[in-house]
Structures are given as structure tokens and as C-alpha cells.
Computed example of a mutant assay.
Amino acid sequence: MYLIVYYCTKLLEMMYYDLISEVIGLIKIYEKETDHKSQDGHLFAQWMNEHYKKNDHQIISEPEWEGKSNGRSADSVINTSLVHLYRYAKLNAKAAIANTSFSTPDEFIYLISLVSLGSMTKTALIKLNVHEKSAGMQIVNRLINNGLVEQASLDSDKRNRMIHITSKGTQVLNDSMQNIKKASSDVTEPLSHLEKLELIRLMTKLESFHESKTRMIS
């Protein structure tokens, strides 16, 4: 137990409060599930390893990355990778919409939003896709001009309008969907199904955090 207390003290010094809480929770489970009377840190570590394996978790060793030895942080690597992946996804999406009615990938993403979530106001559609108002309005206007969506004024707010996908928009989206799905799968191709689910969980956590942070600012 001295070993556990020692590590907890070190964690506290580094202010890893969430990790301390997790370790304490594991100790409580350990006490209930085992017959070990001795407070042996080595036995606890062995049990913890088996516990994670049993619950489909893996103890992941810290990966190497370029610049790590020179002090480059994990945050820097993640941010750079997200930017690169966005560019790779955009290249795939552009290839998918070649020879279609879409000028940019954002246009079919707006249509997919309307199909998935139903009609919504211009403001809601633009915010959903995390665009500045001016950029979002340009996308909506292109869709309107091409007859892919239509708009209707709200009785409660004449300045804002509801956007609906048209039958032409639905048809164009359906005709392009196979290429769009192929472009999406190409981006995540090396990942297994379980890895994709874990990535979704992590990305959703990040996106939810930044979404709520943006709402607080605005």
C-alpha cells in the first residue's frame, strides 16, 4: 500500500486529480473482488492490468512522435494531425464531387445536415457546420441558386428563414452518395471498427467541449 500512497502523492504534486480519483476507484473495486489481505502494490498492478483487459481497455504505452525529444508536446501533435486530416478529407471530398452540381464539399455537407436533422433556419444550419455567417450565407445562396434548397420566411422572425432541401437537392445528393461514402471511408481506411468507435468517442468529447465553450463566448 505504501507504493500506492507514494504514487498518489506524486500524482497530487502534479495535480492529476482525475487520475487520482480513478486510482482510488480501482482500489475500492480491488478490495471487493480479491482475497488479497496484503497491501502489495505489485499484486494491485497485476490485478489492474487484468481488470482493464477484461473490460476491453488496453494499457497503451506512450507513442513516439517527431520532435518529442526536443520538447514537442502531445497537444501540438494532435492539433497538427487534425489540420492534416482535415486537408486529406477535403482532397477526398473534392474528388468525390467532381462532375456534379456541387462546387465545394461544404454544399453536400449542408444537404446531408438537412436530410439528417430536417429543415432548419439559416442561422442554425450555418452554426451546425461551424462556419462564419458570411461564409455560410455564400454556401446557402449557391444551394438556392442551383435549386438544391429553398427558403421560407418565419412568421416570428422575418429576418431569418427556414431552409428546406428540394426534390432536386435530394436527387443530386443521392446520385453523389456512393462517391461521398467512398471518400469518407478512404479517410478512415486503416482503422478497425473498434478503433473507429473509440475515435468517435474521443472526437465527440472534443467537439462537445468546444461547442459549449463557443456558446459561452457568444
Score class of each variant (00 low, 15 high):
residue 75 D to P: 00
residue 215 R to D: 03
residue 182 K to M: 02
residue 190 P to F: 05
residue 131 H to Q: 13
residue 165 I to P: 04
residue 184 S to F: 12
residue 50 E to Q: 09
residue 179 N to W: 09
residue 84 H to W: 03
residue 164 H to R: 12
residue 160 N to F: 07
residue 56 D to R: 14
residue 193 H to C: 00
residue 4 I to R: 14
residue 195 E to T: 02
residue 39 Q to R: 15
residue 117 L to M: 11
residue 54 K to A: 15
residue 215 R to Q: 13
residue 79 N to C: 04
residue 56 D to T: 07
residue 169 G to D: 03
residue 22 E to L: 08
residue 81 S to W: 11
residue 43 L to F: 11
residue 124 A to D: 01
residue 141 N to V: 01
residue 14 M to G: 10
residue 122 K to Q: 08
residue 112 I to E: 04
residue 95 A to Y: 06
residue 18 D to R: 14
residue 212 S to K: 15
residue 133 K to M: 12
residue 105 P to C: 11
residue 57 H to R: 11
residue 138 Q to W: 01
residue 133 K to E: 03
residue 88 Y to I: 09
residue 169 G to F: 08
residue 195 E to Y: 05
residue 204 T to W: 07
residue 178 Q to F: 08
residue 122 K to C: 05
residue 92 N to Q: 11
residue 158 K to P: 07
residue 162 M to A: 05
residue 9 T to S: 15
residue 188 T to Q: 06
residue 11 L to D: 03
residue 58 Q to G: 05
residue 40 D to H: 06
residue 35 D to P: 00
residue 80 T to R: 15
residue 147 G to F: 02
residue 44 F to V: 00
residue 2 Y to Q: 14
residue 127 K to G: 04
residue 145 N to W: 04
residue 141 N to P: 02
residue 73 S to P: 01
residue 185 S to V: 02
residue 56 D to P: 02
residue 55 N to C: 03
residue 46 Q to I: 10
residue 113 S to I: 00
residue 7 Y to C: 09
residue 63 P to H: 11
residue 91 L to D: 04
residue 14 M to C: 04
residue 45 A to L: 10
residue 3 L to Y: 07
residue 93 A to F: 03
residue 120 M to G: 10
residue 56 D to C: 10
residue 77 V to F: 07
residue 120 M to Q: 10
residue 106 D to R: 12
residue 181 K to T: 05
residue 192 S to F: 08
residue 30 Y to S: 01
residue 198 E to M: 06
residue 26 L to K: 12
residue 13 E to Y: 07
residue 197 L to Y: 08
residue 104 T to A: 09
residue 162 M to K: 14
residue 42 H to W: 13
residue 131 H to C: 06
residue 54 K to M: 05
residue 7 Y to E: 09
residue 60 I to F: 06
residue 173 L to S: 04
residue 98 A to G: 06
residue 27 I to H: 05
residue 126 I to Y: 09
residue 124 A to L: 05
residue 97 I to Q: 06
residue 59 I to A: 12
residue 89 A to I: 03
residue 68 K to P: 03
residue 122 K to G: 13
residue 32 K to D: 02
residue 12 L to R: 15
residue 70 N to Y: 13
residue 174 N to F: 13
residue 50 E to W: 13
residue 37 K to V: 01
residue 135 A to V: 03
residue 165 I to K: 13
residue 182 K to D: 11
residue 187 V to L: 11
residue 23 V to K: 14
residue 89 A to R: 06
residue 66 E to Y: 13
residue 90 K to F: 05
residue 187 V to D: 06
residue 200 I to V: 15
